[in-house]
Amino acid sequence: MRKKNLTAYVFLLPSLCGVLLFYLLPFADVVRRSFLTAVTKEFCGFDNYRAVFHNEAFLLASKNTARFCLFCLPILLGLGLFVAVLLDGYCRGKTFLSAYLLPMAIPSATVVLVWKMVFARQGILNACLGDFAALLGKNCVFEIDYMDTGAAFWVLVASYIWKNLGYTVTLWLAGLLSVPAEQKEAARVDGAGSRQVFWRVVFPQLLPNLYTITVLSFLNAFKVFREAYLVAGSYPHESMYMLQHLFNNWFVNLSLDKMAAAAVVTGGVMITGILLLQRLWEKE
């Protein structure tokens, strides 16, 4: 076993070195900074943490980020599952999947342009909604300014789902596919309706995937920041203001102490989250 260990380290070495240098060391520095003041570099204990927890912007950003994650993830996962089920059940063609995966290939910068056009106050979405309403006989005018109101949140959600649906679907599909067909057949033979088949037979087997999918989706949720930043700038509407915005602005304003403390806090929260998840789903 010792040999194994050593070889393991050999394999691990390059990555570990880099990670150490470019991630762990900086993070350690961040932790150090979280205990110092920004300008004079004096030790100030937990002052920064206190400041951070009382900082409105931080609270807002955390709230938004949390809200976003808690809101989007289930939707995405659910929708993804739904589509995956449909695909699996009725349409095995790869074309659909490719179509779904396409958005992932689109660079954020590119798609931002489209978002700008769609979500502007006089944008296409409003136009379509208006048309749609006209079709239905109602003559209401949609003049929602998505960027500057609470609707901004929905913009993010939409962008996120649009981008990641394909990915999620693929993941779910893989999971679905790994369920042996015989099991399903057997269940059906036993007289279970397709719903029951699904929930009783298939789903439990998908649970292990959930961890991975959740983690990945979570990761992608953070990436939404890019679109938000490109569309609405450093100081977007309140409902869009995420943790990354905050960090970015703090960086620009050189409020490094707060940033460090918040980083540590965020890191801490995520660590706890991950560990929890790990505990829940990792059965290693």
Binding site: T7, P26, D29, L243
Partner: peptide, 28 residues
């Protein structure tokens, strides 16, 4: 392989993966 601190290290890796860039931006 199994090695000393594997779980912990892996957890660290996962966390690092999830951390937004801005967190370590300055130090990097």
């Amino acid at each position: 392989y199994d090695f000393w601190m594997k779980k912990a290290l892996f957890a660290v890796y996962v966390i690092l993966m999830l951390l937004p860039f801005q967190v370590t931006m300055l130090s990097q």
